[in-house]
Amino acid sequence: MLEVIGLQKSFGGIRAVNGCTFEVERNTITGLIGPNGAGKTTVFNLISGFFSPDGGKIVLSGSRIDQLPAHRVPHLRLARTFQITRELSKMTVIDNLMVAPLDQMGETLFNSWFRIPSVKRQERKIREKALQVLEFLEIPDLKDEYASNLSGGQKKLLEFGRTMMTDPEIILLDEPGAGVNPTLMKKLNGYIERLRTDEGVTFFLIEHDMDLVMKLCDPIIVMNEGKVLAQGTAREIQENRKVLDAYLGG
């Protein structure tokens, strides 16, 4: 589904990603772990086109995406969240969701002036979908709340919901569990599992909470100092000496 080959990225002197190669298989929940500063977020930013790589290839569903402008990448049915939530604070929860779908015909000035009926038709569908997502995430009451008024955990949910709005085949989650209480985390796990089994969505997620990763993810990729250190099932990773060294030593 997603292939990363020999990926390189430096910032000034820092080699944040230094020859990374791995693959994310379709319909898996693949975990990406590693100590702080290992380059995980940078890998996400490279995949989603926010940075352009210094070297290497990124292939998504058979087509190369490493040279695409960032706003084209979502059209290949990839959606992402951010490590630090980026809610649109002066907009309502439902607007935060409704802005997400791609190729909205109402997003051209001409259509919004002269093709109102068709724009309305599409807008109604988008709204329907947003309400469904809120229902799915069990926060329908928050629909008209300003996003800035949400709690940290609710913001994480909102970001997750936003990715669902685009009907993605693959979702990249950057630390979905950070700052989320255990109850909500359990729910979030459930949502991820359900989307994978019911809708066939592939997940690629960065997470620090080891218990969670070991339970949820298979396979798991471990990064350290910009490189892939190990890859395998939860058990294999737990038994891997290099991984232990990296975590204890780093």
Partner: peptide
């Protein structure tokens, strides 16, 4: 309109706008 909503989005956070195409 959705056009105006997209403008508001990129005013609030350009990276979100980009991440959603």
């Amino acid at each position: 309109s959705p056009w105006g909503r997209a403008l508001r989005t990129l005013r609030e956070d350009e990276r979100v706008a980009i991440a959603f195409g």
